[in-house]
Amino acid sequence: MQLNEWLAHNTFHHSAFWDLKQIVREKEKQNLKVSLCIPTLNEEKTIGKEIVIFKSELMNRYPMIDEIAVIDSGSTDRTREIAAEYGADVYLSEHILPEMGARKGKGENLWKAIYQLEGDIIIYIDADIKNIRPRFVYGLLAPLVYRQEIKYVKAFYDRPLAFSQGVRPSGGGRVTEILVRPLFSLFFPDLTALVQPLSGEYAVRREVLENIPFPIGYGVETSHIIDVYHKWGLSALGQTDLDQRVHRNQATRDLGKMAFGILQTFLSRVQKLGIVPQLPELHTVLRQFQVNDKQFEQLEHHILEEERPPMITIPAYRKKRGMDG
């Protein structure tokens, strides 16, 4: 599939899926089970609203989601209490597959969700979205319900506040435009068609999720895209414009850490795929600087992008899913 063809056929706008009853009918016809996973760490300000809206609109009014699960990394605020109050299934990440140990990072929660949740499709939604609406879920789910060949649908957000007629640039956040898009342009030009490859909202078929490894940190989205592209081709990817997303803005310094983790994952992928020869052992410390009383100080961040293996290789998962006969 050519890039332009992909853009024309696999890029959607949520408004195309306004008929929620039709999505539910199609989902039921295919006997699909859909799980919603919200990874959390101290999200008490937004978690209640997310669950209330999804439960009311996409479980009670239009039965599109079969389970809502919060996979928590050990919040110290009231995230778990509030989520449970509104009927989400709340899990502490470290309690899932305890024999595999516990790692810190969003990717860890996403990976463990594959074991814990029952859906044929899992939709991942970040917990820090201030303007959460049902479209964040059905916009990602619908392409999977209507198009069998699509396996992984990413969100992007593309509603300018003001624009006159004509051509306008469209793109992702700072890390996407400064790091990920240049890297994709160099090594995987097809993937540049993804407007926001790092967005935290996506819907994926289980057959894909259980077969790909999961970096536990910042690199999880980048690695997913490369792996899905490599194993199933560009046509397995889709993207949906969900209009606007209002969320916390991150400081440039935090984006530096994110970029460092993504770069580790990216280099590991291109090496594993044989695109670049053996790389030297890479350092895992990001150094940033600050001035304290006219003295420059070095800040060291240890960022190691560990990776969880494909879930299908985990015996407990195979047993739970009845895969070994």
């Binding site: 609203k49 209330v52 809206i53 439960k55 009311s56 009670n60 009014r61 509104y86 303007n131």
Partner: peptide, 13 residues
């Protein structure tokens, strides 16, 4: 409850 609160949030925003 969820219906009322979801309506409240979506209207209030």
């Amino acid at each position: 409850r969820e219906t009322l609160l979801a309506n409240l949030v979506m209207i209030g925003e």
